[in-house]
Design a protein around this nucleic acid. Structure first.
Lengths: 240, 240, 240, 240
DNA sequence: TATGAATGAGTCTTCATTCAT
DNA sequence: CATGAATGAAGACTCATTCAT
């Protein structure tokens, strides 16, 4: 569906395309948007011409990478919307966006609607992304978990800022704490106080996505809102 | 072309150097770090060779631009430290850093201590910058205006994030509001609640830097902590 | 995709070959000899590999196009030799060559004996072409319709020049007039004078190929030497 | 005046520019318009970047070559117009054009007014060229030396054809004879007959440009109309 | 066998850096 | 000392040709 070339039915071609997208994503993230195409080709283990067969220009390749990234985020957002409480879904989504946007912050320029990226496919993906984001935001606002004076553009900007914050930080754990701190700024003042109170006692809030946890009278207090967050936190601990 | 005295020549050279630094700063900000050196020379109204006489490589020029930028920030920070109350000085300084770092966020990579920038002069400037920042932070923390669990690195990261936020935003006023929101996250929980309360009644806090204002029983309530912030806010209103 | 019988497969292959030759001819004519092979394959509706199955290199394809072209011209020349009076046959043949060599003059390089085209098949075709041309020329010279101081090479050169003339001209009718004018230069001086006199009265010469017409005492004077020329002229009038 | 760069005052730069133009002219003529720019740079003895400093694209270089060529022709035409009798000037000019257009006929595409060459400088040169050509043609027609039913476009086409003729011919002398033959087709029928008669007796016509010579009663009959044609014919003999 | 994906050498073009004027 | 011309290494992109499916 996201292919630039139309009917590439051959299995090897599809595999190559995936290899290139993945290699390009890593290369852009590690070496910046100026990484030579030859480097991407080398990482993907193909010739330069093969890259051009699939993506007519370097710009097209970059856009394909972004499109793929956005679509993963959209899928994740839609799942959260269906499974979690509004505020939990919203903040979990934002964390997801920030953590998966390792592309040294270059993704920011794309998420922020920018007239200089006119390719229709990318534009459509950006729109879908913003739709999901807006839906999550409004639901969370209706549920009282997010300040009412915040709009989708604000959320996008804050997200972009968090990505930069993370990119500028070698210490991932510290970075994550900061992201939490910044995102907390989006909560309603009441919710902030609540959060702070809870956090002081280290009880009642998911240690990963920050969503409130149902208080249980007995048993060991839950630290995470579910298996997903527990696993994510664990991976983060292991990754250092 | 040559002036009357040898001393005049040196003055010419200094003026040229300033022209180049200024032109380079604008060029980097507007066209990114990939702007050709010829373009910078053209903006400065000098030949390419002249740029090389003053800066041995393009990298050196870039660093000189950053050094100048950092030194301006340092000077501003030292003034604030001398003139304002700790928290006010700290937050005013952060706002200053964010607003003057129009270099589309490229400055972030520099402020964040990075091993790939080994030039001693830049390194020294970065250190001075971090010293001022640390002093301001600790003073504000001792005064109870800033959360105690925040370190200098965190502040740098947050600042970098705010620059990105502003860069991704066409609407400057909205961007500024967001920056305020994020920086508020650094205040102590008590201070936050206070702020929020004050802000609701629109009294007692500088509308620009957010520092607390001395409550006066009579007379028109102050909106700004001083002439500087009033002027800055005015410029922002005029700029739209 | 495969037909019913093996014989059918061979027929398919022959049809494919014809499609490719025709597509290549058009492509070379319209876009020059630098047209990509992929473009030719696309025009022929086959894959690039199929072209290579039939023609080992692009050069070979080009030569096959020329061979086909030359053989059509040879066939046409032989027919004229058998059916028309010598001068009429000669000039008609030249017109044919010029008009069918729409390949923007690229054919010139081939017709002119050139050592850089060493493929035997092409060489044979060129030889056959020159044999026919020489036979027509000599016959016309023996018949007194063409200057005696002209050799086959001269005729080839003049033909090439006429093709260029036509190619440089958007107005086909005007181009055709010029070709006539140039070819008239090959006639014997006496014939030229005759022609001019005739042309003044618009009688006695085929209005298309310029061959002399038998004068008839009665009846409507003939404008063309035969149905072929009449038809050709008509097509030209319709094409504008 | 024809420079793309504006104030290239330095002597070495001007010399380099001339070297490049000359090298490019030869390269285009010998290897066609597809000759790599590196080859041109090599012939000129400069680096590839130097070519691009003077001519921003390959197309621009090609056009500069044509402009220079056209301006030489224009200058030659204007001199002839001032010094010779109309018909003599006209035919001498055409010979000049044909002989100097060694660019394997590629010049044809340029002389023939073509919308795909929109650069203003080239366009201006083409216009000047056509003005001179038209002036020469009309003067010769008024003087009765050229058929009245010929227009400037016809002359351009014929010239282009002659260039191709010459290009397809290794034997320069034979080529020259053919050009004469074709150009004679432009003379008035009366002039043709005259020419032919004269030529038979080898008296009274310039052996190079074909202009009539004043008959002298005594002394050795003149073979050329002046020193220029004599010299040109001699060069041609030596060149073989 | 036909297809079209992969290849990589070759081309145009840019630009940091050097150097003659 | 300033200038801007020259350099050439490097990058984006094309396309003839080969080869796996």
């Amino acid at each position: 569906m996201t292919s630039v070339t139309n009917g590439g039915d051959r299995a090897d071609a599809r595999r190559n395309r995936a290899k290139m997208l993945s290699a390009a994503g890593e290369a852009f993230a590690q070496q910046g948007l100026d990484v030579p195409l030859g480097e991407i080709a080398r990482r993907a283990g193909v010739g330069a011409g093969t890259v051009y067969r699939h993506f007519p220009t370097k710009q097209a390749l970059l856009e394909a990478v972004f499109v793929q990234h956005l679509e993963e985020l959209v899928a994740s957002g839609e799942q959260r919307m269906a499974r979690f409480a509004p505020a939990q879904a919203f903040f979990g989504f934002l964390l997801d966006v920030v953590q998966k946007s390792d592309l040294r912050g270059h993704i920011c320029d794309v998420i922020a609607e920018d007239a200089s990226w006119p390719r229709p496919m990318l534009r459509a993906s950006v729109q879908r992304f913003r739709q999901v984001l807006t839906a999550l935001l409004h639901a969370a606002q209706r549920a009282g978990g997010v300040r009412a004076d915040i709009g989708p553009d604000d959320v996008v900007s804050i997200t972009a800022g968090c990505v930069s914050m993370l990119a500028a930080r070698r210490d991932r754990a510290a970075g994550h704490r900061l992201v939490q701190l910044v995102l907390d700024g989006l909560r309603t003042p009441a919710a902030v106080t609540e959060q702070l109170a809870f956090r002081d006692s280290a009880v009642g809030v998911c240690a990963d996505c920050g969503a409130r946890l149902p208080l249980q009278a007995t048993g060991r207090p839950a630290r995470y809102c579910g298996a997903t967050c527990r696993q994510r936190a664990r991976r983060r601990r292991l990754a250092g």
